[in-house]
Amino acid sequence: MALDATTITETGRPAAPATGGMTLQRFARRRSTIAFLMALPLIAVIAGLVAWPAGYAIYLSTLNRRMTSFIGLGNFEILLDSETFRMVIWQSCIFAITAVVLKALLGFWLAHMLHHIPTKGQRVWRGMLLLPWVVPPALSTLGWWWMFDPSYSSLNWLLTAMGGPSIPWLGEPGWARASVIIVNVWAGTPFFMIMYLAALKSVPDQLYEAAAIDGATGWQGLRFVTLPMMRNIISITVLFSLIVTFANYDIVRVLTNGGPRDLTHVFASYAFQVGVLSGNIPRGAAVSLFMFPLLATVAFFMLRGVNQRNREMA
C-alpha cells in the first residue's frame, strides 16, 4: 500500500561503507542536492499553489468588500450574525454526516455481498457498480436533475405507477436537501464499496477458520475478526470521505444552486455565491475558511491513523 510511504523516506538508504572518506561524503552531498532539485517542482506546487493561497485566503478574509482596508474579524462576525449563514453551517454538517454515514453503511453492505459471490462473477458486478464513481459528478448530477424535474420527473412516474405519491423533489426544502444527499450517496457509495472490498480480501481466511473452530457465529466473526482487521481502512475512508463530502460543490451547484430560499447551500456553494457571483471576495474567503477547523481535525486523525499503520507494518 502506498500509505506506508512516510516510513520509507524516514529510514532512507543504509549508510554507505566508510572507506571512501571524502569522495563518499561529496557523493552524499551531491545526492541530497539532486534529490532536492528533483523534488523542487513539487515544492513549488505545494508552496505556490496550496500553502500561499491558503495564507492569502486568511489575509483576504480580513479585508473589507473593496479590499481597501483591514477589518479584522469583521467578515466572520457578519457571517455568524446572519441567519442564512447559520443555516449554511447546519446544512453543511447535516449533509456531510448523513451522506457519509449512508455511504459507509451501503458501501460496507455491498462490499460484503460482492465478497460472497463466486470470484469469477465479481469482476462484472464490480465493473457495473463502480460506474457512478467514474462519470464526472457534474455530468451525472445533470441526469439526476432531469429525473427530479418537476413536470417530467421519471422518478415520480415510477412512484405513481407503484401507487405512491408524487414528490416535489427540488421544490420543497426538506426534499431538496434529501435529493442532494441521495445524489451524493449514489455517486460516493462505489468508492466505499471498492475500498472495503480491498480490505475484506486482505483478511486471511485462517482467521475465520480459527474463529469458527472456536465456535464463533457469523455475527461474531464479523464483530471480532472482520471489523478489527478493517478498522484502519474504515476510519481512513470515512475521514477522507468526510472531507470531500463536506467540501462538495458540484452536486449542489447543478441540482439546486442553493435554492429553494438558500436552504440547500453548503459552505462551498455559498462561498461561490458570495465570493465570485456577488463579488464580495473577502467574505467569500471567510466562508470557505469556516471549513478549515473541521478539515484540520479530520486531517489530524487521518495522519495519526496513517502513522499508526506505518508503525504496525514496520
Binding site: 523516506t9 538508504r13 542536492t33 532536492f36 513539487l42 505545494i46 496550496v50 491558503a54 467569500g284 496513517v306
Partner: peptide, 29 residues
C-alpha cells in the same frame, strides 16, 4: 534519496492532498 526535510515534505504531500479545491478557489481566483 534523502535530503534535509524530505520526511516533512512527504507528510506535506499527504496534507496537501486533503486540502479541497473549494477552500482554495477564491484566493486562486
Amino acid at each position: 534519496m534523502k535530503f534535509f526535510g524530505s520526511g516533512l515534505l512527504a507528510t506535506g504531500v499527504f496534507l496537501t492532498y486533503l486540502v479541497p479545491d473549494t477552500l482554495l478557489f477564491i484566493p486562486l481566483y
